[in-house]
Write a protein that binds this DNA or RNA. Structure first.
Lengths: 231, 231
DNA sequence: ACCTGAACACCGTTCAAGT
DNA sequence: ACCTGAACACCGTTCAAGT
């Protein structure tokens, strides 16, 4: 507005302290900053590049493609999961670990979807596996079952986070709930007797109930189910 | 190649019989055709429009946005799930139903991801819920638990299909498996003893084992776990 | 009411050219 | 070796204009 002394370099966004040199670490850190707390902003190579004061093409020196970037960002994030949280018996510590995992993903909703689809091989992801296998071993679950169990536990936790993240990201979700409620109410008890009878339970209870109950179900189920190869 | 009699209207793709009039049903049908068997083609408004011999803008008369299209296509697809498959006790019929569900999603890998995130309210989706609630009722599971159980069962089945679909869609997946195997092999047994010990079980067994064992775990767990609200 | 072309504001990825 | 601008081949969505 007013006439101010003009510096040589116009400050583009916030006041950025000397353009940092590009590096894989800087790129991953920038990406985490971009999507933290799931602001409406998607993680995009072009957006990330402009955040780092460069062009999209420059990122390809450090990252093969979008997918690899997502995987790197995800593994970095998994480093913040508290694998030693909780006290008491192994069951409670296992539940605490997975709750920490879900909380971490809640803060980065767009990554939860990535986690569902990538089979991650980063160091932090492996540490997560190791911690869970150790707890299951403590509980007497044999390796053949423990491996499948971790898969299942992570799948449940990740899917729960992804669903939450998707809902948080869309303005639609409230309207969607109403539509579901209406659809269920509109059903004749003739054609859908069980659904009508269960309607009151359908959208009830805090979201934490779903996660917690699900984890209990899985742990109880794992303790009761020996592995059998599918015919 | 050779000189053939030239018809008035050049046939654009396959020989299309007189351009069909647009309608919601025609759009959904066209979309299913486009993504059947998960050819590399993504479902895109522009692609779908060109398949229907029109412009993308025209689709907006029948469909509010991409998300709504995906939801409509998904519900249409769920109509082909065999909710009455299987014989014998309720457990086996429940497992047969969910196996049919997964098989259907396998044929349309890109939709499985949609299913993970949308809370569907279409008629076919509701029929799927009703059938599962009926089976759980038969097994003596009370409504409060049954609702959470269906949620969990569908989550597992859907996530399994989505993961499979994602892998089928990417050329990367084989290389990814190798990377995981290498990462696990490269671990010192000192730092990751349980992972090293379980390595042989890690990528073993047919994929069906994961689904089947998971469903057994869930059903056993549900029968053993009363609902308690999270504190 | 239905359909359209053109425009707008984006994407990921490649590549020749610069340093 | 690293970085860049420009180009290519796409997206979803809107809108004025046509029928």
């Amino acid at each position: 507005m007013s006439e101010v002394v003009r510096r040589r370099e116009p400050v583009s966004r916030r006041d950025r302290p000397a353009k940092a040199p590009l590096s894989r670490a800087a790129i991953v850190a920038g990406a985490l900053g971009l999507i933290r707390d799931g602001g409406a902003e998607r993680l995009t190579l072009r957006r990330l590049a402009s955040e780092l004061d460069t062009g999209a093409a420059s990122l390809y020196v450090y990252v093969a493609n979008t997918e690899e970037l997502y995987a790197a960002v995800l593994d970095e994030l998994l480093g913040t999961v508290d694998v030693r949280r909780g006290t008491g018996p192994w069951r409670e510590r296992l539940q605490a670990l997975l709750t920490s995992y879900v909380e971490v993903l809640y803060a980065y909703p767009s990554l939860a979807r990535t986690a569902l689809i990538t089979r991650p091989s980063g160091v932090n992801s492996l540490a997560l596996w190791e911690a869970q296998l150790a707890l299951l071993d403590e509980g007497g679950v044999r390796p053949a079952e423990a491996v499948l169990a971790v898969d299942l536990l992570l799948q449940h936790a990740t899917a729960t986070a992804a669903e939450h993240g998707a809902r948080a990201g869309r303005s639609e979700s409230a309207a969607e709930d109403v539509r579901v409620a209406e659809a269920v109410e509109g059903l004749s008890a003739d054609s859908h007797p069980h659904l009508a009878a269960a309607a009151e339970h359908l959208l009830s209870g805090p979201p934490a109930t779903r996660l917690t109950w699900g984890l209990q179900v899985l742990i109880n189920g794992v303790l009761a189910t020996p592995r059998t190869e599918a015919r």
